[in-house]
Design a protein around this nucleic acid. Structure first.
Length: 497
RNA sequence: GGGCCCGUAGCUCAACUGGCAGAGCAGCUGGCUUUUAACCAGAAGGUUGGGGGUUCGAGUCCCUCCGGGCCCA
Protein backbone atom coordinates (compact mmCIF):
# COMPACT_ATOMS: atom_id res chain seq x y z
CA UNK A 1 0.00 0.00 0.00
CA UNK A 2 1.40 3.38 -0.97
CA UNK A 3 1.73 6.25 1.46
CA UNK A 4 -1.18 7.94 -0.26
CA UNK A 5 -3.36 4.85 0.16
CA UNK A 6 -2.39 4.57 3.81
CA UNK A 7 -3.45 8.15 4.46
CA UNK A 8 -6.78 7.47 2.80
CA UNK A 9 -7.24 4.20 4.72
CA UNK A 10 -6.61 6.10 7.96
CA UNK A 11 -9.41 8.52 7.13
CA UNK A 12 -11.74 5.72 6.08
CA UNK A 13 -11.11 4.12 9.45
CA UNK A 14 -12.12 7.39 11.16
CA UNK A 15 -15.21 7.60 8.95
CA UNK A 16 -16.32 4.17 10.14
CA UNK A 17 -15.59 5.09 13.73
CA UNK A 18 -17.77 8.19 13.40
CA UNK A 19 -20.59 6.14 11.95
CA UNK A 20 -20.21 3.66 14.81
CA UNK A 21 -20.69 6.57 17.19
CA UNK A 22 -23.98 7.41 15.46
CA UNK A 23 -22.59 10.44 13.61
CA UNK A 24 -23.58 11.03 9.98
CA UNK A 25 -20.36 12.21 8.28
CA UNK A 26 -22.33 13.73 5.38
CA UNK A 27 -25.48 15.29 6.85
CA UNK A 28 -28.01 16.94 4.57
CA UNK A 29 -28.51 20.07 6.66
CA UNK A 30 -26.32 22.40 8.64
CA UNK A 31 -26.71 25.31 10.99
CA UNK A 32 -25.04 28.58 10.11
CA UNK A 33 -25.74 32.06 11.40
CA UNK A 34 -22.57 33.90 10.36
CA UNK A 35 -19.70 33.77 7.92
CA UNK A 36 -16.15 34.32 9.14
CA UNK A 37 -16.14 37.75 7.55
CA UNK A 38 -19.42 38.73 9.24
CA UNK A 39 -17.98 37.83 12.63
CA UNK A 40 -14.82 39.81 12.02
CA UNK A 41 -16.82 42.84 10.91
CA UNK A 42 -19.40 42.63 13.64
CA UNK A 43 -17.04 41.98 16.56
CA UNK A 44 -14.03 44.00 15.46
CA UNK A 45 -14.32 46.05 18.65
CA UNK A 46 -14.52 43.09 21.04
CA UNK A 47 -11.63 43.51 23.51
CA UNK A 48 -9.18 40.70 24.32
CA UNK A 49 -10.41 38.37 27.04
CA UNK A 50 -14.09 39.25 26.52
CA UNK A 51 -16.89 37.23 25.02
CA UNK A 52 -20.37 37.85 23.68
CA UNK A 53 -23.71 36.93 25.22
CA UNK A 54 -24.87 35.86 21.80
CA UNK A 55 -24.27 32.42 20.34
CA UNK A 56 -23.33 31.85 16.71
CA UNK A 57 -23.04 28.92 14.29
CA UNK A 58 -20.15 29.02 11.82
CA UNK A 59 -19.34 26.48 9.10
CA UNK A 60 -16.28 25.75 7.04
CA UNK A 61 -13.25 23.62 6.41
CA UNK A 62 -10.65 22.84 9.05
CA UNK A 63 -7.33 24.12 7.71
CA UNK A 64 -5.18 24.23 10.81
CA UNK A 65 -5.08 22.84 14.30
CA UNK A 66 -3.00 23.52 17.38
CA UNK A 67 -3.61 21.01 20.14
CA UNK A 68 -2.54 21.81 23.70
CA UNK A 69 -3.82 18.78 25.51
CA UNK A 70 -7.30 19.38 26.86
CA UNK A 71 -7.74 22.57 24.85
CA UNK A 72 -7.06 23.22 21.19
CA UNK A 73 -7.27 25.93 18.55
CA UNK A 74 -8.66 25.08 15.14
CA UNK A 75 -8.67 27.26 12.03
CA UNK A 76 -11.99 27.22 10.20
CA UNK A 77 -11.94 28.52 6.64
CA UNK A 78 -15.09 29.43 4.73
CA UNK A 79 -15.67 31.27 1.47
CA UNK A 80 -15.22 34.63 3.15
CA UNK A 81 -12.16 34.08 5.34
CA UNK A 82 -10.98 32.37 8.50
CA UNK A 83 -12.15 32.20 12.06
CA UNK A 84 -10.47 30.43 14.96
CA UNK A 85 -12.31 27.83 16.99
CA UNK A 86 -11.46 27.30 20.64
CA UNK A 87 -12.28 23.79 21.76
CA UNK A 88 -11.84 22.51 25.26
CA UNK A 89 -12.62 19.40 27.22
CA UNK A 90 -14.41 21.59 29.79
CA UNK A 91 -16.93 22.88 27.27
CA UNK A 92 -17.43 19.72 25.21
CA UNK A 93 -16.96 16.93 27.71
CA UNK A 94 -14.15 14.43 27.67
CA UNK A 95 -15.78 11.89 25.38
CA UNK A 96 -16.84 14.36 22.69
CA UNK A 97 -13.60 16.32 22.81
CA UNK A 98 -11.52 13.20 22.34
CA UNK A 99 -13.73 11.97 19.51
CA UNK A 100 -13.19 15.25 17.69
CA UNK A 101 -9.43 15.08 18.12
CA UNK A 102 -9.40 11.45 17.09
CA UNK A 103 -11.66 11.44 14.05
CA UNK A 104 -11.72 14.96 12.58
CA UNK A 105 -8.90 15.76 10.15
CA UNK A 106 -7.57 18.82 8.43
CA UNK A 107 -9.74 19.30 5.36
CA UNK A 108 -12.98 18.14 6.98
CA UNK A 109 -15.99 20.46 7.00
CA UNK A 110 -17.25 21.32 10.45
CA UNK A 111 -20.02 23.45 11.93
CA UNK A 112 -19.33 25.01 15.32
CA UNK A 113 -21.61 26.70 17.85
CA UNK A 114 -20.69 28.98 20.72
CA UNK A 115 -20.05 32.48 22.01
CA UNK A 116 -17.64 34.75 20.17
CA UNK A 117 -14.54 35.53 22.18
CA UNK A 118 -11.32 37.41 21.61
CA UNK A 119 -8.38 35.48 23.03
CA UNK A 120 -5.67 37.00 25.18
CA UNK A 121 -3.46 37.06 22.08
CA UNK A 122 -6.15 39.07 20.28
CA UNK A 123 -7.52 36.41 17.92
CA UNK A 124 -11.28 36.51 17.37
CA UNK A 125 -12.58 33.00 18.03
CA UNK A 126 -15.67 30.95 18.64
CA UNK A 127 -15.61 29.24 22.04
CA UNK A 128 -17.15 25.99 20.90
CA UNK A 129 -19.93 24.36 22.89
CA UNK A 130 -21.37 22.23 20.13
CA UNK A 131 -20.15 20.94 16.79
CA UNK A 132 -21.57 19.25 13.74
CA UNK A 133 -19.45 17.32 11.28
CA UNK A 134 -20.56 18.56 7.85
CA UNK A 135 -18.39 16.51 5.50
CA UNK A 136 -15.45 14.21 5.95
CA UNK A 137 -12.51 14.55 3.55
CA UNK A 138 -10.76 11.34 2.56
CA UNK A 139 -7.61 12.89 1.18
CA UNK A 140 -5.15 15.35 2.72
CA UNK A 141 -5.00 18.92 1.47
CA UNK A 142 -1.77 20.35 0.03
CA UNK A 143 0.65 21.68 2.58
CA UNK A 144 -0.61 24.68 4.52
CA UNK A 145 2.52 26.78 4.27
CA UNK A 146 3.79 26.39 0.71
CA UNK A 147 0.48 25.60 -0.95
CA UNK A 148 0.33 23.78 -4.28
CA UNK A 149 3.07 24.86 -6.68
CA UNK A 150 3.19 22.15 -9.30
CA UNK A 151 1.67 23.86 -12.36
CA UNK A 152 0.33 20.69 -13.83
CA UNK A 153 -1.37 19.72 -10.57
CA UNK A 154 -2.76 23.26 -10.26
CA UNK A 155 -4.38 22.97 -13.70
CA UNK A 156 -5.58 19.40 -13.36
CA UNK A 157 -6.88 19.77 -9.81
CA UNK A 158 -7.93 23.40 -9.87
CA UNK A 159 -10.04 22.93 -6.74
CA UNK A 160 -6.86 22.40 -4.75
CA UNK A 161 -5.21 25.40 -6.37
CA UNK A 162 -8.19 27.60 -5.49
CA UNK A 163 -8.29 26.23 -1.98
CA UNK A 164 -4.69 26.87 -1.01
CA UNK A 165 -3.40 29.52 -3.42
CA UNK A 166 -5.00 32.85 -2.65
CA UNK A 167 -3.67 34.64 -5.77
CA UNK A 168 -5.29 32.05 -7.99
CA UNK A 169 -8.60 32.55 -6.26
CA UNK A 170 -8.28 36.31 -6.71
CA UNK A 171 -7.56 35.90 -10.42
CA UNK A 172 -10.89 34.19 -10.97
CA UNK A 173 -12.74 36.70 -8.82
CA UNK A 174 -11.18 39.42 -10.98
CA UNK A 175 -12.28 37.56 -14.09
CA UNK A 176 -15.85 37.63 -12.88
CA UNK A 177 -15.65 41.36 -12.11
CA UNK A 178 -14.29 42.04 -15.60
CA UNK A 179 -17.18 40.24 -17.27
CA UNK A 180 -19.65 41.99 -14.99
CA UNK A 181 -18.15 45.40 -15.80
CA UNK A 182 -18.32 44.57 -19.49
CA UNK A 183 -22.01 43.67 -19.26
CA UNK A 184 -22.76 46.76 -17.23
CA UNK A 185 -20.96 49.00 -19.73
CA UNK A 186 -22.88 47.56 -22.68
CA UNK A 187 -26.23 47.40 -20.89
CA UNK A 188 -25.95 51.07 -19.95
CA UNK A 189 -25.46 51.91 -23.63
CA UNK A 190 -28.59 50.11 -24.74
CA UNK A 191 -27.01 46.89 -26.00
CA UNK A 192 -29.19 43.80 -25.84
CA UNK A 193 -27.56 40.62 -24.60
CA UNK A 194 -28.47 37.64 -26.79
CA UNK A 195 -27.64 33.99 -27.28
CA UNK A 196 -27.01 32.45 -30.68
CA UNK A 197 -26.28 28.87 -31.75
CA UNK A 198 -23.12 27.12 -30.68
CA UNK A 199 -24.01 24.14 -32.89
CA UNK A 200 -23.98 25.50 -36.42
CA UNK A 201 -24.60 23.79 -39.78
CA UNK A 202 -21.99 26.05 -41.42
CA UNK A 203 -19.21 27.63 -39.38
CA UNK A 204 -18.01 31.14 -40.14
CA UNK A 205 -17.17 34.59 -38.89
CA UNK A 206 -13.42 34.11 -38.84
CA UNK A 207 -10.62 31.99 -40.27
CA UNK A 208 -10.20 28.85 -38.18
CA UNK A 209 -10.64 25.09 -38.20
CA UNK A 210 -13.77 23.91 -36.41
CA UNK A 211 -14.68 20.98 -34.17
CA UNK A 212 -17.14 18.72 -35.95
CA UNK A 213 -20.01 16.81 -34.41
CA UNK A 214 -23.14 15.04 -35.56
CA UNK A 215 -26.81 15.32 -34.69
CA UNK A 216 -28.32 11.83 -34.80
CA UNK A 217 -31.98 12.84 -35.12
CA UNK A 218 -31.34 15.45 -37.82
CA UNK A 219 -28.80 13.17 -39.49
CA UNK A 220 -26.70 16.27 -39.94
CA UNK A 221 -23.08 17.24 -39.42
CA UNK A 222 -22.81 20.26 -37.13
CA UNK A 223 -19.88 22.45 -36.16
CA UNK A 224 -19.11 24.05 -32.83
CA UNK A 225 -19.02 27.73 -33.60
CA UNK A 226 -15.68 29.40 -34.25
CA UNK A 227 -17.46 32.77 -33.86
CA UNK A 228 -21.04 33.97 -33.39
CA UNK A 229 -20.61 36.76 -35.96
CA UNK A 230 -22.90 35.63 -38.76
CA UNK A 231 -25.82 35.00 -36.39
CA UNK A 232 -25.42 38.32 -34.61
CA UNK A 233 -25.52 40.08 -37.97
CA UNK A 234 -28.83 38.36 -38.73
CA UNK A 235 -30.15 40.14 -35.63
CA UNK A 236 -29.13 43.50 -37.09
CA UNK A 237 -31.05 42.54 -40.20
CA UNK A 238 -33.97 41.73 -37.89
CA UNK A 239 -33.99 45.26 -36.52
CA UNK A 240 -32.06 45.07 -33.26
CA UNK A 241 -29.68 48.01 -33.37
CA UNK A 242 -27.31 47.05 -30.58
CA UNK A 243 -26.62 43.44 -29.59
CA UNK A 244 -23.89 41.55 -27.82
CA UNK A 245 -23.04 38.02 -26.80
CA UNK A 246 -20.49 36.76 -24.32
CA UNK A 247 -19.74 33.09 -24.78
CA UNK A 248 -17.45 30.29 -25.74
CA UNK A 249 -15.92 29.87 -29.17
CA UNK A 250 -14.21 26.66 -30.25
CA UNK A 251 -11.23 26.43 -32.56
CA UNK A 252 -9.61 23.13 -33.39
CA UNK A 253 -6.07 24.43 -33.40
CA UNK A 254 -2.89 24.45 -31.39
CA UNK A 255 -2.66 25.06 -27.66
CA UNK A 256 -0.25 27.68 -26.39
CA UNK A 257 0.20 30.22 -23.62
CA UNK A 258 -2.26 32.41 -25.58
CA UNK A 259 -4.58 29.81 -27.09
CA UNK A 260 -7.07 27.42 -25.54
CA UNK A 261 -9.30 25.38 -27.88
CA UNK A 262 -12.36 26.81 -26.17
CA UNK A 263 -12.20 30.43 -25.12
CA UNK A 264 -14.54 33.24 -24.18
CA UNK A 265 -15.35 36.04 -26.56
CA UNK A 266 -17.41 39.18 -26.42
CA UNK A 267 -18.94 40.15 -29.73
CA UNK A 268 -21.01 43.29 -30.06
CA UNK A 269 -22.64 45.04 -33.01
CA UNK A 270 -23.93 48.57 -33.31
CA UNK A 271 -26.09 49.71 -36.22
CA UNK A 272 -25.35 53.05 -37.90
CA UNK A 273 -21.80 52.90 -36.55
CA UNK A 274 -18.46 52.22 -38.22
CA UNK A 275 -15.05 51.02 -37.10
CA UNK A 276 -14.11 54.49 -35.81
CA UNK A 277 -17.07 54.30 -33.45
CA UNK A 278 -16.00 50.79 -32.42
CA UNK A 279 -12.52 52.07 -31.58
CA UNK A 280 -14.09 54.56 -29.20
CA UNK A 281 -16.37 51.90 -27.77
CA UNK A 282 -13.40 49.58 -27.24
CA UNK A 283 -11.19 52.09 -25.46
CA UNK A 284 -14.11 53.35 -23.37
CA UNK A 285 -15.12 49.82 -22.39
CA UNK A 286 -11.63 48.69 -21.45
CA UNK A 287 -11.18 51.94 -19.54
CA UNK A 288 -14.47 51.36 -17.69
CA UNK A 289 -13.31 47.87 -16.73
CA UNK A 290 -9.97 49.27 -15.59
CA UNK A 291 -11.72 51.87 -13.46
CA UNK A 292 -13.86 49.18 -11.88
CA UNK A 293 -10.66 47.32 -10.96
CA UNK A 294 -8.70 50.46 -10.08
CA UNK A 295 -6.18 49.54 -12.78
CA UNK A 296 -6.17 52.40 -15.29
CA UNK A 297 -2.41 52.13 -14.97
CA UNK A 298 -1.15 48.58 -14.69
CA UNK A 299 1.91 46.43 -15.11
CA UNK A 300 1.81 43.56 -17.58
CA UNK A 301 4.76 41.17 -17.63
CA UNK A 302 7.11 43.92 -16.54
CA UNK A 303 5.72 46.61 -18.84
CA UNK A 304 3.92 49.67 -17.49
CA UNK A 305 0.68 50.19 -19.37
CA UNK A 306 -1.87 53.02 -19.24
CA UNK A 307 -5.27 52.20 -20.74
CA UNK A 308 -6.64 55.75 -20.47
CA UNK A 309 -8.21 56.82 -23.80
CA UNK A 310 -7.53 57.85 -26.44
CA UNK A 311 -5.38 54.98 -27.69
CA UNK A 312 -2.90 55.19 -30.51
CA UNK A 313 -4.28 54.64 -34.02
CA UNK A 314 -1.62 53.00 -36.17
CA UNK A 315 -2.26 52.09 -39.81
CA UNK A 316 -0.91 48.64 -40.56
CA UNK A 317 1.12 49.92 -43.51
CA UNK A 318 2.96 52.42 -41.28
CA UNK A 319 3.55 49.79 -38.62
CA UNK A 320 5.11 47.36 -41.09
CA UNK A 321 7.20 50.10 -42.64
CA UNK A 322 8.52 51.06 -39.24
CA UNK A 323 9.26 47.56 -37.96
CA UNK A 324 10.30 45.72 -41.13
CA UNK A 325 11.20 48.46 -43.58
CA UNK A 326 8.75 46.94 -46.07
CA UNK A 327 6.20 49.18 -47.80
CA UNK A 328 3.11 47.21 -48.76
CA UNK A 329 2.16 49.80 -51.40
CA UNK A 330 5.34 48.93 -53.27
CA UNK A 331 4.87 45.18 -52.84
CA UNK A 332 1.34 44.63 -54.16
CA UNK A 333 1.74 41.01 -55.24
CA UNK A 334 2.48 37.81 -53.37
CA UNK A 335 5.58 37.25 -55.48
CA UNK A 336 7.00 40.71 -54.78
CA UNK A 337 6.29 40.52 -51.05
CA UNK A 338 7.64 36.99 -50.75
CA UNK A 339 10.83 38.04 -52.51
CA UNK A 340 11.24 41.05 -50.20
CA UNK A 341 10.76 38.90 -47.14
CA UNK A 342 13.35 36.46 -48.44
CA UNK A 343 15.79 39.30 -49.14
CA UNK A 344 15.45 40.41 -45.53
CA UNK A 345 16.47 36.90 -44.53
CA UNK A 346 13.34 36.43 -42.47
CA UNK A 347 12.07 32.94 -42.10
CA UNK A 348 8.35 32.87 -42.73
CA UNK A 349 6.40 29.90 -43.98
CA UNK A 350 5.28 30.58 -47.52
CA UNK A 351 1.60 31.31 -47.31
CA UNK A 352 -0.87 30.78 -50.10
CA UNK A 353 -1.74 34.46 -50.42
CA UNK A 354 -0.34 37.95 -50.15
CA UNK A 355 -2.69 38.72 -47.29
CA UNK A 356 -1.55 35.73 -45.27
CA UNK A 357 2.03 36.83 -45.71
CA UNK A 358 1.16 40.29 -44.41
CA UNK A 359 -0.56 38.66 -41.46
CA UNK A 360 2.60 36.65 -40.68
CA UNK A 361 4.78 39.75 -40.85
CA UNK A 362 2.52 41.68 -38.53
CA UNK A 363 2.33 38.86 -36.00
CA UNK A 364 6.07 38.39 -36.04
CA UNK A 365 7.43 41.93 -36.11
CA UNK A 366 4.74 44.37 -35.09
CA UNK A 367 2.39 42.83 -32.53
CA UNK A 368 4.99 42.05 -29.82
CA UNK A 369 6.04 45.72 -29.93
CA UNK A 370 2.57 47.08 -29.24
CA UNK A 371 2.82 47.52 -25.49
CA UNK A 372 0.79 50.70 -24.96
CA UNK A 373 -2.83 50.42 -26.10
CA UNK A 374 -2.84 50.59 -29.89
CA UNK A 375 -5.37 50.09 -32.64
CA UNK A 376 -3.67 48.51 -35.61
CA UNK A 377 -5.90 49.45 -38.53
CA UNK A 378 -6.67 49.16 -42.22
CA UNK A 379 -6.01 45.51 -43.02
CA UNK A 380 -5.73 43.89 -46.45
CA UNK A 381 -9.12 43.13 -47.93
CA UNK A 382 -7.94 39.67 -48.88
CA UNK A 383 -7.74 38.44 -45.27
CA UNK A 384 -10.89 40.29 -44.15
CA UNK A 385 -13.80 38.87 -46.10
CA UNK A 386 -16.48 40.24 -43.75
CA UNK A 387 -15.22 43.82 -43.58
CA UNK A 388 -16.19 46.81 -45.66
CA UNK A 389 -13.58 48.22 -48.05
CA UNK A 390 -12.10 51.65 -47.44
CA UNK A 391 -13.65 54.00 -49.99
CA UNK A 392 -10.34 55.78 -50.61
CA UNK A 393 -8.24 52.57 -50.71
CA UNK A 394 -10.34 49.70 -52.00
CA UNK A 395 -7.65 47.03 -51.47
CA UNK A 396 -7.85 47.77 -47.75
CA UNK A 397 -10.76 47.34 -45.35
CA UNK A 398 -12.07 49.29 -42.38
CA UNK A 399 -10.79 46.87 -39.79
CA UNK A 400 -8.75 47.14 -36.62
CA UNK A 401 -7.27 44.95 -33.93
CA UNK A 402 -6.59 46.36 -30.46
CA UNK A 403 -3.28 45.47 -28.78
CA UNK A 404 -2.08 46.00 -25.22
CA UNK A 405 1.06 44.58 -23.69
CA UNK A 406 1.75 42.72 -26.94
CA UNK A 407 -1.55 40.86 -26.55
CA UNK A 408 -4.00 40.80 -29.44
CA UNK A 409 -7.25 41.57 -27.68
CA UNK A 410 -9.77 41.49 -30.49
CA UNK A 411 -10.88 42.31 -33.97
CA UNK A 412 -13.37 44.78 -35.39
CA UNK A 413 -14.71 46.14 -38.64
CA UNK A 414 -17.11 48.33 -40.41
CA UNK A 415 -19.23 45.34 -41.31
CA UNK A 416 -19.70 44.46 -44.95
CA UNK A 417 -23.42 44.83 -45.71
CA UNK A 418 -23.36 44.70 -49.50
CA UNK A 419 -24.75 41.21 -50.27
CA UNK A 420 -23.27 41.08 -53.74
CA UNK A 421 -19.82 42.11 -52.54
CA UNK A 422 -20.15 39.59 -49.70
CA UNK A 423 -20.91 36.83 -52.20
CA UNK A 424 -17.86 37.80 -54.19
CA UNK A 425 -15.69 37.72 -51.02
CA UNK A 426 -16.98 34.25 -50.19
CA UNK A 427 -16.12 33.20 -53.72
CA UNK A 428 -12.55 34.38 -53.22
CA UNK A 429 -12.41 32.42 -49.97
CA UNK A 430 -13.62 29.32 -51.75
CA UNK A 431 -10.82 29.84 -54.23
CA UNK A 432 -8.28 30.05 -51.39
CA UNK A 433 -9.76 26.93 -49.85
CA UNK A 434 -9.28 25.08 -53.14
CA UNK A 435 -5.64 26.17 -53.06
CA UNK A 436 -5.23 24.45 -49.72
CA UNK A 437 -6.09 27.06 -47.09
CA UNK A 438 -8.00 25.01 -44.54
CA UNK A 439 -8.94 28.12 -42.60
CA UNK A 440 -10.62 29.94 -45.49
CA UNK A 441 -14.26 30.87 -44.89
CA UNK A 442 -16.86 28.50 -46.34
CA UNK A 443 -19.64 30.06 -48.41
CA UNK A 444 -22.77 30.53 -46.32
CA UNK A 445 -25.78 30.74 -48.62
CA UNK A 446 -28.23 31.17 -45.75
CA UNK A 447 -26.29 34.17 -44.44
CA UNK A 448 -26.22 35.70 -47.92
CA UNK A 449 -29.98 35.24 -48.16
CA UNK A 450 -30.39 37.17 -44.90
CA UNK A 451 -28.03 39.89 -46.07
CA UNK A 452 -30.08 40.38 -49.23
CA UNK A 453 -32.99 41.55 -47.08
CA UNK A 454 -30.76 44.45 -46.02
CA UNK A 455 -28.46 45.10 -43.10
CA UNK A 456 -27.89 48.66 -41.87
CA UNK A 457 -24.36 50.04 -41.86
CA UNK A 458 -22.91 48.49 -38.73
CA UNK A 459 -19.81 48.49 -36.61
CA UNK A 460 -18.82 45.16 -35.06
CA UNK A 461 -16.31 44.25 -32.37
CA UNK A 462 -14.97 41.02 -30.94
CA UNK A 463 -12.93 41.05 -27.73
CA UNK A 464 -11.11 38.08 -26.25
CA UNK A 465 -12.23 37.91 -22.66
CA UNK A 466 -9.46 35.53 -21.57
CA UNK A 467 -6.78 37.79 -23.02
CA UNK A 468 -8.31 40.79 -21.30
CA UNK A 469 -8.24 38.89 -18.01
CA UNK A 470 -4.60 38.00 -18.64
CA UNK A 471 -3.85 41.70 -19.05
CA UNK A 472 -5.57 42.76 -15.86
CA UNK A 473 -4.21 39.89 -13.75
CA UNK A 474 -0.70 40.00 -15.22
CA UNK A 475 -0.99 36.38 -16.32
CA UNK A 476 1.70 34.99 -18.61
CA UNK A 477 -0.41 32.06 -19.74
CA UNK A 478 -4.05 31.82 -20.75
CA UNK A 479 -4.16 28.67 -18.61
CA UNK A 480 -3.84 30.85 -15.55
CA UNK A 481 -7.13 32.63 -16.32
CA UNK A 482 -9.18 29.62 -17.46
CA UNK A 483 -10.47 27.52 -14.57
CA UNK A 484 -10.10 24.19 -16.34
CA UNK A 485 -7.70 24.66 -19.25
CA UNK A 486 -7.30 22.00 -21.94
CA UNK A 487 -4.53 19.52 -21.10
CA UNK A 488 -3.40 16.30 -22.66
CA UNK A 489 -5.16 13.39 -21.01
CA UNK A 490 -3.18 11.65 -18.34
CA UNK A 491 -1.94 8.25 -19.47
CA UNK A 492 0.06 5.45 -17.90
CA UNK A 493 3.37 6.80 -16.79
CA UNK A 494 2.02 10.20 -15.91
CA UNK A 495 2.63 11.33 -12.38
CA UNK A 496 -0.36 13.47 -11.55
CA UNK A 497 -3.80 11.84 -11.12
C1' G B 1 6.39 20.35 -35.82
C1' G B 2 11.74 21.68 -33.66
C1' G B 3 15.07 23.05 -29.41
C1' C B 4 16.00 23.58 -24.18
C1' C B 5 14.46 22.60 -19.05
C1' C B 6 11.65 19.88 -15.36
C1' G B 7 9.12 15.28 -12.97
C1' U B 8 12.24 12.39 -5.79
C1' A B 9 7.01 10.60 0.31
C1' G B 10 -0.03 13.20 0.18
C1' C B 11 2.31 18.65 -0.17
C1' U B 12 6.99 21.84 -0.35
C1' C B 13 11.94 20.69 -1.17
C1' A B 14 17.31 18.29 -0.36
C1' A B 15 20.73 14.41 -2.04
C1' C B 16 28.77 17.14 -4.33
C1' U B 17 32.20 14.26 -9.75
C1' G B 18 27.84 7.85 -10.40
C1' G B 19 28.73 5.54 -4.01
C1' C B 20 23.82 3.94 2.44
C1' A B 21 17.39 8.11 -1.04
C1' G B 22 16.89 12.69 3.43
C1' A B 23 14.17 17.00 5.83
C1' G B 24 9.86 20.15 7.03
C1' C B 25 4.53 20.03 6.85
C1' A B 26 0.44 16.43 6.87
C1' G B 27 -0.57 11.39 9.00
C1' C B 28 0.42 7.73 13.42
C1' U B 29 1.79 6.94 19.06
C1' G B 30 2.56 9.60 23.70
C1' G B 31 2.74 14.50 26.56
C1' C B 32 0.80 19.45 27.21
C1' U B 33 -6.08 24.05 29.02
C1' U B 34 -4.61 30.48 25.30
C1' U B 35 -2.17 28.68 20.48
C1' U B 36 -1.04 31.52 15.57
C1' A B 37 3.94 27.75 10.55
C1' A B 38 2.18 26.15 18.54
C1' C B 39 5.70 23.10 21.16
C1' C B 40 8.28 18.40 23.13
C1' A B 41 9.38 13.01 22.53
C1' G B 42 9.02 8.61 19.47
C1' A B 43 7.93 5.35 15.44
C1' A B 44 6.59 5.04 10.41
C1' G B 45 6.14 6.62 5.41
C1' G B 46 9.75 5.71 -1.55
C1' U B 47 8.03 1.56 -8.46
C1' U B 48 13.08 8.71 -7.52
C1' G B 49 6.87 9.73 -13.91
C1' G B 50 6.81 4.50 -17.15
C1' G B 51 10.06 1.12 -19.91
C1' G B 52 14.94 -0.27 -21.48
C1' G B 53 20.41 0.27 -21.42
C1' U B 54 25.68 1.36 -19.59
C1' U B 55 28.14 0.25 -14.85
C1' C B 56 30.77 -3.51 -9.41
C1' G B 57 27.11 0.27 -8.31
C1' A B 58 22.13 4.86 -11.44
C1' G B 59 17.61 9.77 -8.47
C1' U B 60 22.30 11.18 -10.98
C1' C B 61 24.91 8.94 -17.43
C1' C B 62 22.50 7.04 -22.39
C1' C B 63 17.94 5.59 -25.32
C1' U B 64 12.70 5.65 -25.48
C1' C B 65 7.73 6.73 -24.00
C1' C B 66 4.19 9.86 -20.84
C1' G B 67 3.07 14.62 -18.71
C1' G B 68 4.29 19.71 -17.75
C1' G B 69 7.08 24.42 -18.44
C1' C B 70 9.84 27.94 -21.53
C1' C B 71 11.54 29.43 -26.35
C1' C B 72 11.27 28.94 -31.62
C1' A B 73 7.87 27.73 -35.79
Amino acid sequence: MSAEERLRAERLRKLEDLRAQGIDPYPARCERTHTAQQLHERFSELPPGEETEEFVWVAGRITGRRVLGKASFWDLKDGTGRIQLLLSQDALGEERYELLLRDVDLGDFLGAYGRVVRTRRGELSVRVEDVQLLAKALRPLPEKWHGLKDREARYRQRYLDLLVNEPSRRTFETRSRIVRAMRQFLDERGFLEVETPILQPIYGGTAARPFTTYHNELEQTLYLRIAPELYLKRLLIGGFERVYEIGKNFRNEGISTRHNPEFTMLECYQAYADYEDMMELTEQMVYAIAQELGKEKLSYQGHDVDVTPPWRRLPLREALLEHTGLDLEELPTHEALWEAVQRKGLFVDQQPTWGRLVDELVSEYVEPKLIQPTFLLDYPKEISPLAKAKPEAPHLVERFEPFIGGLELGNAFSELNDPLDQRERFREQEEQRRRGDEEAHPLDEDFLLALEYGMPPTGGLGLGVDRLVMLFTDARSIRDVILFPALRPKKDGARTP
